[in-house]
Computed example of a mutant assay.
Amino acid sequence: MKLTRDELIQSVSAQMPEKRWRHTEGVMQSAVLLAKRYGADPVKAELAAILHDVAKYWPSERQEQLLRDKGLNDELLLYDKPLWHAEIGAYVAEAEYGIDDEEILNAIRYHTSGRVGMTLLEKIICLADYIEPGRDFPGVDHIRRLAETSVEAALVAGFDSTINLLVARRQIIYPLTVLSRNDLVKQLELEGEL
C-alpha cells in the first residue's frame, strides 16, 4: 500500500501518543539535516524517520507474536522489550506500508542497536534518534556537537551513553550494540579521528 507523505504521517502518528509523535517529528527534522550535511538521501532519511517508531507503542504481546510468527529476529525476545519495536517496525514498513527499499528498512531495523557495517542512512537514523531537539539526557549536547563534524564520533558517544546507563542500572546489554560501537571506533581509528 503506497501512501502519500501526509497519509503516511497520519497513519503512523495515529499509532502513538502525541508526545512520541513530537519525538518522531524531531527525528525527521534531525535526519533530514544530517542527510543533507553528510550526503545521504534526505527523502529516504525522512521516510525512515517517519516509520522508525511505528510499532513502539504496540502491546508487547502483539510484538512478541509478530517476532515469533513472521520469522523475524526472535533472539530479541531474550533482551529488553524496547529493542523489539525496531525489528517490528521494519516488518510493518514493508508488509503494511509497501516500503521495499532495503536501506530504509535496515535504517528502521537497526535504529536502536546499530550493527556492524552500518550504512550512512542507518547511522543517520540512529543518530537522529539520539539528538532530536526534544531529547534531554546527560551528554546529549556533547553528542549534538560531535554530530556537527562526525556521524561516527557522535554515534560512539551515543552508544557509550546507552551502555553506561544500562551498566549503571545493572541491565543486560544487547551484544549487537557493543559490536556496533566497536565497529565505529575501528572506523574512527582507520580515519585517524581517534
Rank of each mutant, 00 (worst) to 15 (best):
L34C: 11
T24S: 06
Y57R: 12
I124C: 05
D160N: 13
L72F: 05
G98N: 09
L146T: 05
L121P: 04
E96I: 11
L51S: 10
L76H: 10
Y57I: 11
V116I: 11
E87L: 05
F137K: 04
A45S: 08
L67Q: 13
E132R: 06
M118I: 06
I163A: 08
E64D: 10
R115G: 03
R135F: 00
I125N: 06
I125G: 04
T24P: 01
E87G: 07
N106Y: 05
A107K: 10
R115H: 03
G71H: 09
V43A: 13
R22M: 06
I131N: 02
R62E: 13
H142A: 09
Y38G: 05
S161D: 11
A95W: 05
L76R: 11
W84F: 09
D74Y: 01
D141W: 03
E132N: 08
Y130M: 08
Y91T: 12
D136F: 01
Y97T: 15
I131C: 04
V27F: 00
S150D: 08
L66F: 09
I143F: 00
V27T: 07
G139D: 03
L127G: 02
E75P: 00
A40M: 06
Q29G: 02
N106K: 13
D69L: 09
I125V: 14
I50D: 02
R144V: 02
A48M: 03
E94S: 15
P138G: 05
A55W: 04
D129N: 07
R37Q: 14
N106D: 14
I104V: 15
E148M: 09
L33N: 14
R62W: 08
D74R: 12
I104L: 05
P42G: 12
A49M: 02
G89T: 14
G117A: 07
Y110E: 02
L165N: 10
D141C: 03
A147G: 10
G134D: 02
S161Y: 04
A128N: 05
T149R: 14
K70Q: 15
T112V: 05
